[in-house]
């Protein structure tokens, strides 16, 4: 080990002395005993600082506010710095294992989309006419749950409060759900709540899409036809 210059040792001893309330010189002799390899027997320098630490104060002394201290580098084992638990992990190469699957998924999705697009044209009705409102007028399908709510609640509740709270609530899920387990058996309540809201949204959307006819009145799609465009 390289020799540590004496003025650095002294500064360190002074800071430590101030924090621990022990005389500087006592620490200096300890430090010197430790730092000079020739003077030390193998066991002693390790033992002495440890014993002072345990008798006088906790190992990490509280540094008074406004005091700048320096630490000397020591050898720290890599494990402690990285802190990553080295549990054995079961990993595979991204190429080919993941990329191949992604590629196939991509092709299948693209294939389905193309086939659907060849056989089903996107709708195009007459030119927009602000003076002639079709009956019923419906929002895009993903808002039809909200439009359905409009027929039960005040517009301020259905149009602003519920979607606003819904979105905020969704974003806050990770901060509200303090349960750390991801095992389905441990999260019955969370799963139940989420499923409830998803089902509610789905049912409202289906009602708004298929069960609402002229005047947004209730109809049966098999009786009066479907009033719904994508």
């Amino acid at each position: 080990m390289a020799e540590i210059p004496e003025h650095l040792l002294r500064r360190s001893a002074e800071a430590k002395a101030k924090a621990l309330g022990v005389p500087v010189e006592q620490l200096m002799t300890e430090f010197l005993g430790e730092a000079a390899p020739a003077a030390a027997t193998a066991a002693e320098p390790v033992a002495s600082p440890a014993s002072t630490a345990t008798t006088t104060a906790p190992a990490a002394p509280v540094i008074p506010e406004g005091v700048r201290t320096q630490r000397m580098l020591t050898v720290v084992r890599a494990k402690a710095i990285q802190g990553a638990p080295r549990e054995p992990s079961d990993k595979v190469s991204t190429w080919p294992h993941l990329l191949a699957i992604e590629f196939v998924a991509l092709l299948v999705a693209l294939g389905l989309l193309i086939v659907f697009s060849v056989y089903q044209d996107a709708p195009l009705l007459e030119l927009a006419n602000p003076n002639e409102q079709p009956n019923p007028s419906k929002a895009p399908w993903y808002f039809l749950g909200l439009q359905e709510l409009l027929s039960y609640f005040d517009p301020q509740v259905a149009g602003v409060l519920i979607p606003g709270l819904g979105l905020a609530g969704l974003a806050l899920i990770p901060y509200v759900d303090r349960n750390r387990s991801i095992r389905p058996a441990d999260r019955k309540f969370a799963i139940m709540m989420f499923t409830f809201f998803v089902m509610a949204a789905a049912i409202l959307t289906i009602l708004g899409s298929f069960y609402r006819g002229p005047g947004f009145n209730f109809t049966f799609p098999w009786r009066d036809g479907i009033f719904f465009d994508l």
Partner: peptide, 10 residues
């Protein structure tokens, strides 16, 4: 078209 105009209006 009519679909676009009125869906967005709603």
């Amino acid at each position: 078209d009519q679909l676009a105009l009125w869906a967005v209006t709603v």
